Structures are given as structure tokens and as C-alpha cells.
Simulated assay, not measured.
Amino acid sequence: MNEQANFFERIKQTLPSYQNLAQSVADILGISINEAYKKIRGTSLLNINQITKLSDGFSIPFQYQPSQLPTVTFNYVSHSDQAEHMTEYLKEMLATMKQIQKSKQKHITVTSDDVPIFHFFKYPTLTAFKLFYWANNPSMQQFDFEKLPSSILDIALELHQVYLEIPSTEIWAKDTIHGTIEQIRYSFEAGHIGNKADAVAIVEQLRYCLTDISMYAIGSKKTIDNTHSFNWYHCDVLGGITYMVDLEQSMLCYNRFNTYNYLKTEDQTFCLQTKEWIKGLINKSMAFSGQGEKHRNKYLYQAFAECDKLIDEINKA
């Protein structure tokens, strides 16, 4: 019974305020409003077929874990590097982000040794390069911005905008920016970026991206809306790339691996342990947002200097 109540609570969190839960359940199951209320209250149990229909209709998995087994269930999300699959991958990501955005209470916490991907998506050439580099496809030896479908860039830009409107906390490592700079340097030196102008444009857009993040940090918010808060921290050592989502009554956890595939779980015990781990990281971290001007400026100055050095190397090559 408790699992059924939790299931409906998670469904409720994904619905916009104007959408009635009972009516939505009744429509999907083909039952009366009265019977839908009974299901939601738990006085009438869902059968397997109804659980499946609701899971498919709301894109919310029903989870059951035997109490005696300390196991965690993950969903594995991956894709191929073909353009049509990349488009579907980004569409699924956008649908997930919009679900989070619609929740009454939400917050995303990111721990990462690479700049969180949503920041890149504002800049088309930088986005195209990161997708090219991540694909790691032997048949794609040469970076060509013109080959990236405009539909992918449109979805990426929308993902960026949605992320701006979700309160977030980001914990970066010492080399978070350095990783992308080295990817650009390697790709240029290896001949994967054959055009100097493209290489310079990628680095310049990375600079613009960092400037944006600096502005978010100064105001501790990503837009003019104070509810779109932004907390930025620096920690010397991170244990992995994690996206932690806090909702009103539940949490989600995404662990990235193999570049940008990820494992997703809604196991609340696992999520709570991850949240406690993140709290420990924050306690050992240096704040960059708000009053952390001195340390933030030093960190960004070094990053900008690395960008300038790489642009100089490209122009002299």
C-alpha cells in the first residue's frame, strides 16, 4: 500500500498545478473519477496492467524493493553517436528537465570534473565540438560545424534555458575547466579541427560561457528571477560526476559514466546517502558564489589565461 501511495505522490509532482491528478489517472486507466480517487487514496489497489499504463502514461517507474534485500535499481540511459540517436537522447533529456522544471519544489546539485553540459548549450560551435569530442567515433575524423543538424542545436539551446530556470548548486573540481581546454588543444593538434578559425571560435565561446557562469555567481542566481538560484563551490577532489535532483517528496540521482551516458535511480536510501556525501563535499569546499569574489576571480583568471594561451598557440601553428 505504501508503494502505491509513493507512486501517486511521484506522479503528482510531475503534473503542472492546473492539471488534476484524479482526472489524469481516470483518463489513462479508463475508469471513473471516483474510482481514480480510491486508487490515489489506496483504498483500491492497482493491478499490474494499471501500474504499467500509469508508468507509461506519466513516464514514472513503479518501484518495489523487498525490505530484506539491500539492492538499488538503476535505469541505464545510453545512445549511439549517430545524429538521429543524439537527437533522441537530447529530446529525452529535455523531457526530463521539463518535468523537473514543472515541479513545485526542485533543486539540482551537480558535482563534476567537467563543466556541467547545460552551460555549453548556449553556444553553437562549442556545443558542436563537445558533441563531436564525446562521440569518439573513428569514422568522424574531422570536426565540421556545418554537419551538425540545426535541430540538435535548437534542443540544446532549450535545455540551456530550462536549466537556467531550475535552482542549482554546482561543485567544481580543480581541473573542471582544464579538461575542456585540453580536449580542444588535443583535437587541434591531432588535426581533428582543421580550421584555425573554428578552433579559436570554440575557445572564445568557452570564455563567454565562463563569463556567464561568473555573472550567475555574482548575483547567486541564473536569471533576474531570484528563485532561479545558483550556488557555486570549488572542491579540490571530487569522487565522480553526479546530478542530484531534490523534489518536494522525493529525490533522483544520475551518475554519469563513459562520457555522458548515465545511470538513474529513484532509490531514496541511495539518494539520501548521496545527498549526505554532497553535504560533506560542500563543507570541505570554497564558495565562489555571492561573497566568494576573491577566490572566484582567481579561479577564473587562471582559466581565462589558459584560454588565451591556447588561442595564441592556435594562431601561431
Rank of each mutant, 00 (worst) to 15 (best):
residue 192 H to C: 09
residue 66 P to V: 00
residue 300 L to N: 06
residue 225 D to P: 11
residue 135 A to C: 13
residue 81 D to V: 04
residue 168 S to K: 15
residue 199 A to V: 12
residue 160 H to A: 00
residue 211 T to Q: 11
residue 238 L to Y: 07
residue 90 L to A: 03
residue 132 F to E: 02
residue 70 P to W: 05
residue 43 T to W: 04
residue 158 E to C: 00
residue 260 Y to Q: 15
residue 45 L to D: 14
residue 48 I to E: 14
residue 161 Q to R: 11
residue 137 N to G: 06
residue 214 S to L: 08
residue 149 P to R: 01
residue 269 T to G: 14
residue 289 S to K: 02
residue 104 K to W: 01
residue 11 I to W: 05
residue 155 I to A: 01
residue 31 I to Y: 07
residue 14 T to S: 14
residue 311 I to W: 01
residue 169 T to A: 05
residue 76 Y to M: 12
residue 157 L to A: 05
residue 192 H to A: 03
residue 11 I to N: 00
residue 257 F to D: 00
residue 270 F to I: 05
residue 201 A to G: 07
residue 225 D to L: 02
residue 317 A to V: 07
residue 18 Y to G: 09
residue 10 R to C: 06
residue 121 F to M: 13
residue 246 D to I: 00
residue 44 S to C: 10
residue 194 G to D: 09
residue 272 L to P: 01
residue 289 S to I: 04
residue 291 Q to N: 14
residue 279 K to Y: 07
residue 174 K to I: 13
residue 277 W to D: 15
residue 175 D to L: 11
residue 262 Y to D: 00
residue 44 S to T: 08
residue 285 S to F: 04
residue 61 P to I: 03
residue 67 S to A: 09
residue 218 I to N: 02
residue 87 T to M: 08
residue 129 F to V: 03
residue 262 Y to N: 04
residue 94 L to A: 06
residue 204 E to R: 11
residue 222 K to G: 08
residue 278 I to C: 04
residue 155 I to V: 09
residue 182 E to S: 04
residue 168 S to G: 12
residue 219 G to N: 15
residue 143 F to M: 10
residue 158 E to G: 06
residue 7 F to V: 09
residue 83 A to S: 10
residue 269 T to F: 10
residue 114 D to G: 06
residue 169 T to H: 00
residue 84 E to Y: 12
residue 253 C to S: 13
residue 229 S to M: 03
residue 166 I to T: 11
residue 145 F to R: 02
residue 240 G to R: 02
residue 63 Q to D: 12
residue 38 K to P: 07
residue 204 E to L: 09
residue 138 P to Y: 01
residue 144 D to M: 07
residue 242 T to V: 14
residue 147 K to M: 11
residue 282 I to V: 13
residue 193 I to G: 09
residue 263 L to K: 03
residue 131 L to E: 06
residue 134 W to P: 06
residue 240 G to W: 10
